[in-house]
């Protein structure tokens, strides 16, 4: 897990922005929307990578945080639209359609959920950890399905995208810029984090737990912190995804979603900063190009995934950077 240098990571980010700008200039708003999707899924993947890539925590339940971020957004927005309070106990909380007000709530809710789920799941390791995180996410999924107040199985729509100061939120490129900015800032923070004292200890705990303990640090505290931060990033991605679609449904919480986020990370390169963006880009490009040809396009994705895991464990980024940085 060596630092691969800032350049390849920046290059992937810049490429994504370039695609969006060129598509917008040449009158292809649909491509801009696809690029926005890549930015959002990439953000969720960057979040998962913090736990999976750097902490060695194979969470199969990150849809829980992604979906919670989405539901927070939709619930606040729908209450703002109907001018009804979200809650009256212990204090009256009104809905809002301001992204800058929604995001902190989404971060808080997904962070708290990650704290509870992490504190319980991190008592297990290996396959059990995977299964316990999956189980918690499925619990939330079934809860959303069976809770009629917010749409239940049908999901919850809000008709106007939430607003952001100074931005025309309906212009695809402007909404893309907001998502890309969130992604860029998160990448910088994650890059700093992984090189910090905390990051050093977290990466050490993945390789040699006994050594970290002998250094006077509890691996549990490191992992729980990483898991919470990871969940918060996924929650922010979920909030943006809700705004992209102006709709949330229990599908955001389902294990398919957890699997997809994991695919972005593994496809792009586990423990590589921009890996999940590359992974999400390939995923969405395949869906866009092959989806209309056949409903079974995911079979090809599966084949690609098998090839990557077998022959290029460093993912697409590892493949592209082969021979460099060891």
């Amino acid at each position: 897990m060596r630092f691969t240098g800032a350049l390849p990571n920046a290059a992937i980010f810049v490429a994504l922005v370039a695609v969006a700008v060129v598509a917008d200039r040449s009158g292809n708003p649909y491509i801009v929307t696809l690029a926005t999707k890549v930015a959002i899924f990439g953000l969720a993947g960057v979040g998962l990578n913090l736990a999976l890539g750097y902490g060695g925590l194979v969470s199969f339940g990150h849809a829980a945080f992604f979906g919670l971020g989405g539901y927070v957004t939709a619930i606040l927005a729908s209450h703002a639209a109907s001018a009804t309070p979200v809650a009256t106990v212990p204090f009256t909380m009104m809905g809002t359609n301001e992204m800058l007000a929604i995001w902190p709530v989404a971060l808080l809710v997904s962070g708290l959920a990650a704290l509870v789920i992490g504190a319980l799941s991190l008592r297990t390791t290996g396959v059990y950890f995977i299964m316990v995180t999956l189980a918690f996410a499925q619990m939330l999924y079934y809860f959303a399905v069976s809770w009629p107040a917010y749409g239940g199985e049908d999901g919850l729509s809000f008709y106007v995208r939430n607003s952001f100061p100074g931005a025309n939120i309906f212009a695809p490129l402007q909404f893309f810029a907001i998502c890309a900015a969130a992604l860029g800032v998160t990448m910088i923070l994650v890059a700093l984090l992984t090189q910090s004292r905390f990051g050093l200890a977290l990466r050490a705990a993945k390789q040699n737990e006994a050594r970290v303990i002998a250094s006077g640090v509890r691996p549990f505290a490191l992992r729980l912190t990483a898991f919470v931060l990871s969940g918060m990033v996924a929650g922010l991605a979920g909030a943006l995804f809700a705004d992209l679609n102006r709709f949330v449904s229990p599908a955001m919480l389902s294990w398919h979603m957890s699997g997809e986020i994991m695919v972005f990370v593994i496809l792009g390169g586990v423990g590589r900063l921009a890996g999940p963006i590359a992974g999400a880009a390939v995923f969405i490009a395949l869906e866009y190009l092959l989806g209309p040809v056949s409903d079974h396009w995911q079979a090809l994705l599966g084949l690609l995934l098998i090839l990557i895991v077998l022959f290029a464990p460093g993912g697409l980024m590892g493949l592209a950077l082969r021979g460099r940085h060891g």
């Binding site: 984090l193 910090s196 004292r197 905390f198 990051g199 200890a201 970290v212 250094s215 640090v217």
Partner: peptide, 17 residues
Amino acid sequence: LAVQGASGSTFRFLKPA
């Protein structure tokens, strides 16, 4: 890793170690 563990300063998040 041992230096930071001994000084109880592991939970610092932004400064490159």
